[in-house]
Computed example of a mutant assay.
Amino acid sequence: MMINKYTNMKIGELMNNSLISNLKHGLIVSCQALEQEPLYGSAKMLSMAMAAQEGGAVAIRANTPRDIAAIKSKCALPIIGLYKKHYPGSDVYITPTLLEIKEIVEAGADFVAIDATMLARPNGILLKEFIPSIRKNFPSTLIVADISTFEEGVAAMDLGVDVVSTTMSGYTPYSLQQEPPDIALVARLSALGTTPILAEGRIWTPEECVACLDAGAHAVVVGTAITRPQEITKKFVKSIDHFLKT
């Protein structure tokens, strides 16, 4: 019995390592739409995911159990799942509690993305308590820590997360506020050589994508620039308006 348990654990570890290693130097496409957006709906997000798969993406990042389940039903790519939910008294909304973890794991997520910033968590739960709880209740699930600063990245690594993503850089009041992606943060975290780093946030061009990889990113996550046509349209319109005013 002990041998079987040990063997299963080793197989699980190899599978987990394979999921992470297969992301290396690849493009992860974030397929998300909020309720007020034109492309909201699981069928539309599935179409986005299938288009990303056809284009050569190595994984999908998806929000809500419903979207994750729909994408998992037809898309062969691994899914980084999250569940955006707001709780009173907390600014943390990316998979904030074990309840959301449970729902997206059951929906088929291969990775679970969580807010790993210093922002106040629901019910006063500390990150150093939350991550062990995930490990205890969902031992085979890989944890992606969404951080906004170097210090948060190091803290997440110390807590034993599987992957660190720069998702929240610029989205917390104390992190670097700039329009370009935070490539310097990617470089600093990658240089530690301890945990794979995903570059995410405000990546608009293939050149910026390659720059993140050159800085040491394990893989790159792009969302808005690929899957939110209303925001892409706004950038073109803004450029036209600027041209007309000069």
Rank of each mutant, 00 (worst) to 15 (best):
H86F: 15
I79H: 06
V92Q: 14
G89W: 05
E129C: 11
P96S: 14
I240T: 04
A145T: 06
G193W: 11
T194R: 15
L244C: 12
T246I: 07
L98Q: 09
G108R: 13
G12T: 14
T97I: 10
T7Q: 15
L176V: 15
V221Q: 03
A52S: 09
T195S: 07
C209W: 04
S190P: 11
E106P: 02
I28N: 12
M168N: 05
V112R: 12
Y87M: 12
L127S: 12
Q178M: 14
P229I: 00
A215C: 05
T64P: 03
V164W: 13
A155G: 04
N17C: 14
P196V: 11
R121A: 12
K24A: 12
K234C: 05
A116L: 14
C31Q: 04
I114S: 12
I3W: 07
G108L: 09
K235D: 07
F236E: 07
V210G: 06
G12Q: 15
A69T: 02
T167Y: 07
V222E: 02
P229C: 03
M9A: 15
D146V: 10
A199R: 09
S140M: 13
A107E: 09
P181S: 13
C212M: 06
A215H: 06
A33Y: 01
S90D: 09
L23A: 12
A116Y: 05
T195G: 10
H218F: 00
P88L: 12
S175M: 07
I80N: 12
P196Y: 13
K24D: 10
E37N: 00
C209I: 04
T246H: 07
H86P: 11
V105E: 10
K44A: 01
G153Q: 00
T195F: 08
A225L: 00
A155R: 05
T166W: 05
L39R: 01
R61G: 06
R66Q: 00
S169I: 06
I3R: 15
G56E: 06
S165W: 03
T166I: 02
L244F: 08
A217W: 04
I94S: 06
L46H: 03
I68H: 00
D162R: 13
E207F: 05
H86G: 13
Y174I: 12
I80H: 13
M45R: 02
L82R: 15
I68M: 04
S190L: 11
I101W: 10
C209T: 13
I101Y: 09
Q230E: 14
G55M: 04
L176R: 14
E207W: 02
A33F: 05
S47W: 03
T227Q: 01
P132G: 09
K74W: 07
A211I: 04
V186S: 11
S169C: 11
K44M: 02
E129K: 10
S140E: 07
D182R: 00
G12S: 15
P78K: 13
L98T: 11
G26A: 14
I11S: 09
K72C: 05
Y87Q: 14
G81T: 07
T167W: 10
P139R: 06
E54F: 01
A145S: 13
L189E: 05
T172P: 02
I143C: 13
I101T: 09
Y6G: 11
K24G: 07
K136D: 15
V105M: 08
K102P: 07
I197C: 13
Q178C: 09
I131Q: 03
A225N: 02
L198P: 08
L19A: 06
